[in-house]
């Protein structure tokens, strides 16, 4: 799963990250985002990943990576150890997204989070007309085999952040591939964004 496409996602994230900052990519896969950010933003980075072979790929690339799980292993890090924590397309697969979000903004000054928008019009259509769980480019699993546990809409995410006293600083405009100042809920996004990509921090 990726957000629209990887290159686009990487560019948007790279644009918002201050150069030479210290980051952690949770669910870093084969470390390609970290490599991209090392190259373009000169970051000091490390990853967390659950898949053994991907961990070994990271090690061979010289990327520091810890075998771990967003749900249980973020507690190990002290407050504000990182400038940015990054969690792309994983929030919906965590057991406790609320706790994970709190940890993300605890261990880093800012967090970058992306997730599929369950409020997208095509999903609503699929449910409304076909009475079937949606399968599309961002939700590419059938209901019986999906690792996703907690779907949310962009509005749900905004509500949760408010409840957790988390400030949404920026929201990505996926059409223009840029982060923009967050100005509250938008009707357009909630219907037409396949994904949400946010820059958040502790209030």
């Amino acid at each position: 799963m990726s957000l629209i496409n990887k290159t686009k996602e990487f560019t948007i994230i790279s644009d918002v990250i201050t150069s030479k900052s210290n980051i952690i990519d949770i669910g870093c896969s084969d470390g390609s985002l970290i490599e991209y950010l090392k190259l373009n933003n000169n970051v000091v980075a490390r990853g967390m990943e659950i898949d053994q072979s991907k961990i070994r790929t990271c090690l061979s690339k010289g990327i520091s990576v810890v075998e771990g799980d967003a749900d249980t292993d973020l507690f190990d890090y002290p407050d504000n150890l990182f400038d940015y924590s990054i969690l792309t397309y994983t929030l919906q697969a965590t057991k406790n997204p609320k706790v994970v979000l709190e940890q993300l903004v605890r261990i880093a000054g800012k967090a970058i989070v992306s997730f599929p928008n369950f409020g997208h019009w095509s999903i609503a259509m699929s449910l409304f007309f076909n009475r079937e769980m949606p399968v599309n480019s961002t939700l590419d699993y059938s209901w019986y085999e999906t690792p996703n546990l907690h779907f949310c809409t962009i509005n749900d995410f905004i509500n949760l952040c408010e409840g957790l006293n988390i400030k949404i600083e920026k929201k990505a405009d996926l059409r223009k591939s840029v982060f923009k100042e967050f100005k509250g809920k938008s009707l357009y996004d909630s219907y037409f964004s396949e994904s949400g990509l946010f820059l958040i921090s502790k209030k």
């Binding site: 490390r46 053994q52 961990i55 070994r56 990271c58 090690l59 520091s64 990576v65 810890v66 075998e67 771990g68 190990d76 890090y77 002290p78 150890l81």
Partner: peptide
């Protein structure tokens, strides 16, 4: 060990081999 080194911000990797 990993937890401690993480807490200190040390560049640590960890792998549990099956």
């Amino acid at each position: 060990i990993v937890k401690t080194l993480n807490a200190l911000g040390i560049d640590v990797s960890f792998l549990e081999i099956e």
